[in-house]
């Protein structure tokens, strides 16, 4: 456990070394948020609410969703590159789990971006836009936990596709499709509230709703009490399902490598 923590901390520190990256990350996140807020302000055109959703709720949704999705990005071609150049076998020579090590590195990078990209961009947004406060300190806390679960779901989706590099020549296309699907179905383009009812029923059966929207609703207090618990339970269930799938693909990929030699 200690080793993985150290790995995450080191990745965090590595990121600090790149100052240009640091400023670009803030600017990038801030611009994305501002652009979306401008579009939706125009769409609201002074109306106090649309379908019972205020502009301030939409703004809050976007700040959280876009801020997190910017922070949660990392190199998703990592495993494929390692499989292609054969250096993946080196990883089996280390007395640590490659999967957990990769997760630790990605988490370290995410933590860095949350603190140094997302927080400054959030402060900048607060200068010009009023956002909804969390329903209570407890809701904020629950939301942070839910964000961590959402991250795991997103990470597992990516990891599962990455493991396909053991069989496919390139997973780049599939990763791209996955990312488009996430941005549409997880609500980074259009807030989940405004999705057609039929589509929302479909999304409710997929892991996408659990990534960003569940944390947003917890923060706003839309999910409360039993609903909050069930939202978190659904997230946990997705982690279990995706985690199992990831484990199976990973085991089979490794087996292919060690039995057939690549």
């Amino acid at each position: 456990m200690r080793a993985y923590l150290e790995i995450a901390v080191r990745k965090f520190q590595d990121k600090m070394a790149y100052r240009l990256d640091f400023f670009m990350g803030i600017v990038n996140t801030a611009i994305t948020i501002v652009v979306y807020l401008c579009i939706y302000r125009a769409l609201y055109a002074g109306a106090s609410e649309v379908d019972g959703i205020t502009y301030r709720m939409v703004a809050t949704n976007f700040v959280i969703t876009l801020g997190l999705s910017n922070a949660f990005g990392y190199n998703e071609m990592f495993l494929q590159d390692k499989v292609h150049d054969g250096s993946i076998t080196n990883e089996f020579l280390k007395p640590v789990s490659f999967t957990l090590r990769l997760l630790a590195e990605n988490v370290g990078e995410g933590a860095f971006k949350l603190i140094f990209h997302f927080l400054p961009a959030l402060l900048f947004t607060l200068l010009h836009t009023r956002l909804c406060p969390p329903k209570s300190a407890l809701h904020l806390l629950a939301m942070l936990g839910s964000v961590a679960l959402g991250y795991l779901i997103l990470w597992l989706l990516s990891f599962i596709i990455q493991t396909w590099s053991f069989w496919l020549f390139s997973v780049w296309g599939i990763i791209t499709i996955k990312n488009v699907l996430v941005s549409i179905l997880a609500g980074t383009l259009l807030p989940m509230w405004f999705m057609p009812a039929a589509l929302r029923r479909v999304i409710a059966c997929t892991p996408f709703e659990s990534i960003y929207f569940t944390p947003v609703r917890i923060y706003l207090g839309e999910l409360d009490g039993a609903q909050l618990l069930s939202g978190v339970a659904v997230q946990t269930a997705w982690i279990a399902v995706l985690g199992l799938a990831a484990w199976i693909f990973w085991r089979r990929g490794v087996k292919k490598l060690v039995v057939q030699g690549g």
């Binding site: 200690r2 080793a3 150290e6 790995i7 080191r10 280390k94 007395p95 640590v96």
Partner: peptide
């Protein structure tokens, strides 16, 4: 340094 952590 990374080896130091990985191999404890």
């Amino acid at each position: 340094e990374l080896m130091k952590f990985i191999y404890r």
